[in-house]
């Protein structure tokens, strides 16, 4: 068992008086793939957003490499924990303009070399000749790949993905999942992906965390999970 990258201890999230997450205890292992699965409204997005401090838990604590989240400057933390949203969010300009945003914002100190840009683009499933294309003219699937590539520019250790395939058609979804799997295998990136589709979960594989009504009802390796999956 790898050492934990992110640990959650007794996490509870209350929004507008409603308990959305309760008693969440979890360990996300370094270099492993994790899938948060569960029905719509289970609290998957809410949980994921706690992991790069887009939101704060009401109670409980989160550790990153054994260090309390609160003791890590939030901007550093977000550089190390990238996030891909459900709907691809593209910035103005070319694909290259999108990829150079972290440098232009000085999140990273030095510009990324052209060959490195191309490498990241290809790892995300886009060809090098995409660099100069206008980002707004890409297909939805290509846009989502671009947001994955953009998240990789910071060289994060962890990548959070919130139903990254939900805006994509089936074929594009499968392709994206294959790229995500490759990112994990090639770069050793820790993956935490939300989905409510069993097919995508089994395709990606890894540790499956089943969330219902804000609590974890089951946590298993995907091989074991799908042996008796009629429960979902």
């Amino acid at each position: 068992m790898n050492k934990p990258k992110i640990e959650l201890h007794k996490i509870e999230k209350i929004k507008n008086g409603i308990t959305i997450l309760k008693d969440i205890n979890l360990k996300f292992s370094s270099g492993k793939r994790h899938i948060l699965i569960g029905p719509s409204g289970a609290g998957k997005t809410t949980l994921l957003r706690l992991l790069n401090r887009m939101d704060e838990p009401t109670f409980g604590e989160i550790l990153y490499d054994g260090k309390n989240f609160k003791d890590i400057p939030v901007l550093d933390l977000r550089r190390r924990i990238g996030m891909v949203f459900q709907i691809p969010i593209i910035f103005d300009g070319s694909v290259k303009d999108n990829l150079t945003v972290p440098y232009r914002l000085r999140v990273i100190p030095s510009p990324i070399k052209q060959d490195e840009l191309i490498k990241i683009l290809e790892l995300s499933g886009l060809q090098s000749d995409f660099l100069e294309r206008k980002a707004s003219e890409l297909s939805v699937g290509e846009k989502q790949r671009l947001t994955v590539a953009r998240a990789l520019i910071n060289k994060p250790d962890v990548l959070l993905l919130d139903e990254p395939t939900s805006a994509l058609d089936h074929a594009a979804g499968i392709k994206l999942l294959e790229s995500i799997k490759e990112l994990n295998e090639v770069l050793g990136l820790t993956i935490i992906m939300v989905t409510h589709q069993l097919e995508y979960a089994s395709l990606l594989g890894g540790r499956i965390i089943h969330l219902v009504n804000g609590t974890i009802v089951r946590e298993q390796e995907s091989e074991d999970f799908f042996l008796n999956s009629e429960i979902i």
């Binding site: 949203f85 999140v107 953009r150």
Partner: peptide
């Protein structure tokens, strides 16, 4: 939020 998630 996309900018914030990138460390902005």
């Amino acid at each position: 939020e996309a900018y914030l998630a990138l460390g902005a």
